[in-house]
Design a protein around this nucleic acid. Sequence first.
DNA 1: CGATAAACGAGACGGTACGTCTGGTCTTGTG
DNA 2: CACAAGACCAGACGTACCGTCTCGTTTATCG
Lengths: 204, 204, 204, 204
Amino acid sequence: MAGRNENSKRAVLEATSEMLSDATVQQLSIEAIAKRAGVGKTTIYRWWPNKSAVVIDAFMEHHLIHTPIPDDVPVREALVTHVTSLVEQYAGPGGRLVAQLIAESQYDEQILTAFRERFWNGRRAAVLELVKRGVREGELRDDTDAELMVELVYSPVYVRLLLGYRELDREFARAVVDAAFAGIAPATAKTSPGKKRARRITRS
Amino acid sequence: MAGRNENSKRAVLEATSEMLSDATVQQLSIEAIAKRAGVGKTTIYRWWPNKSAVVIDAFMEHHLIHTPIPDDVPVREALVTHVTSLVEQYAGPGGRLVAQLIAESQYDEQILTAFRERFWNGRRAAVLELVKRGVREGELRDDTDAELMVELVYSPVYVRLLLGYRELDREFARAVVDAAFAGIAPATAKTSPGKKRARRITRS
Amino acid sequence: MAGRNENSKRAVLEATSEMLSDATVQQLSIEAIAKRAGVGKTTIYRWWPNKSAVVIDAFMEHHLIHTPIPDDVPVREALVTHVTSLVEQYAGPGGRLVAQLIAESQYDEQILTAFRERFWNGRRAAVLELVKRGVREGELRDDTDAELMVELVYSPVYVRLLLGYRELDREFARAVVDAAFAGIAPATAKTSPGKKRARRITRS
Amino acid sequence: MAGRNENSKRAVLEATSEMLSDATVQQLSIEAIAKRAGVGKTTIYRWWPNKSAVVIDAFMEHHLIHTPIPDDVPVREALVTHVTSLVEQYAGPGGRLVAQLIAESQYDEQILTAFRERFWNGRRAAVLELVKRGVREGELRDDTDAELMVELVYSPVYVRLLLGYRELDREFARAVVDAAFAGIAPATAKTSPGKKRARRITRS
DNA sequence: CGATAAACGAGACGGTACGTCTGGTCTTGTG
DNA sequence: CACAAGACCAGACGTACCGTCTCGTTTATCG
């Protein structure tokens, strides 16, 4: 039995990676990747179901985004650090690629799944951990909805990435984290919201 | 331009609209639209720069999403109503289409612009107005960052739409609005956050 | 309606014709023809069902074989002249091509039909005419089976062409015609063959 | 040493033989043969240079055509018997295969050689023998061109096989042999043809 | 009788070409 | 005389096989 040739795999991912710096995912073609990698098209189709799968793998190998979460500072600051570095990386070429992967996901359930598993879930887990610490150390309310927290913190980043609505910068990162921690109702409000808020924000 | 072409235009948009109920934007082809509309390909290219532009127009004509914002209830409730109806519409077939338009936007600046102008800005303006009212009526702090508010409220909706991370439902709509209004730090906190929060959340 | 572009057609046939001088029909590819002709593959597939059809057309336009049949000499001599010139042309590059067309015919009924109609039937008709004259002028027996005559005269030529069994030359052309006219039984034979022959050779 | 595995060889030929009843030589692929035979492609390439070689071997083993030539009847009748049985076999599925082998021969000199050696030469030798007997026993003229005889008798059969010009049947077999023995000039002719014929028909 | 080297099955590899599809442009005949 | 109809060039799609090339795994002498 033959077994997979690691050289081919590497060549494909490398070629893809290189080409992605000049072209969009849509512009890439399996044919061009194969030619650039010096590999038969069949070899690509043998190991990947489609173009986006190749792109995801290439991205994971060469463009991996590292977003450290310090654990020796208050949770809020740790989050700011984390989101800031995420934002900074998404502001570069890697961001365009991630946006395109999300685009491809709209047409292929498998890409969507892969994207969620390889990008979203990793970060989500880190934030969940962080929230747990925050609760433990009293920095967050006991009934904090951690999952919602994940979405509150990341969603604006992804929307800016996708819609280019406004700049992806550190200011923005801090504002988002602050908002997630604070809310914007008048600090003096003594009305029901105070209580309701706690209830509402908790998700089953 | 001859009167004749209004018919063609309408036929194209109608054909596109019909076909979109069975197919993704990617699956549509100018060729197929032309055939179904009984129109020459040239005619389409004369009036629209590309497929996505046709789709946007078709969507605006036939699938328009209405998300009322009541003005006789507290801002927070008005927002909940608004986001809830948005979420409900995005949970249906219209949502899939919007997601695909965002996807197409990643590959064409013009689509992105069109999308922002026709979808995002409309809602954004409504929310800005609402925030203004909230400030005026004392329901929101004077220094509320209205633009940030827009993002805080909509982003999680779009991210769930695109990543299908969790269900798009009314629970979620309310939770998101509540979060935007509240924040999740301990209610009893007397620390700096109180003041810092105000400063931080304000954007220059 | 658009209507066929004569330039494209000509370019395809010319390219095919040129390439056929260096390559076998099997070695030709639609892709290569399209490239050489500066034409889209689609255009070829639009007008011809397959490679062999293109080759037949190209051959008819550029390599056509002319085999005159004089009508002012005895039928036998006219036939010798005709077969000789056929043989001489088949001995050249045109012969290889005809052989390959017969080969292709084994895999495609349409090619076979086209081949018979465009090559075989033309010659056959000429020989039938000739036989008619021969009978009229008393050079051939009244009951001559003209169709059989066609086969007797051409078959050995085609078999030598295909099997390369022996040289295709003028000697051979004359021998074949003579044989068709003569037979090889002893001239002195007084046996039944004389009569039977007449009956047998006539086909219903 | 491992030694050649006769099982593999047999399996390949058997698989080929079976597949040939449903498919043309062109449609067969080494890959399919290997799979059907439960054999590695390498094994096939080790023992045969190409597809046609496998087909020839398979044909020789399973579809061999037997065409008896009786030696106790006049040569003419013996020939009729022989050609009749040849014609009858070629009218069946074996004929299609032989035609395809001739087709393949146009693209590969080795196939042509193999075909001539294994099919043509055998029959040719038998006919040569027969002609020798005919001359010895006075049934044929001394100067009979035996090689030409071979071609005269077989060519029409092969041409009908390849071009499907008309039916391959016993009528035809007899007509061809008669023609070879007789010629078609008027029986009463006392002119030169009688002598010329003899001269002409003799080949150096 | 156990080592050893061939031939073996499996199947991955770099390639070529297939026939189809769509994109975006150009051409033509018709209503 | 505008426009539907559709032909045009271009080139990617995903598939089928090509002939070569490892891979372990039989096997079947021969040392």
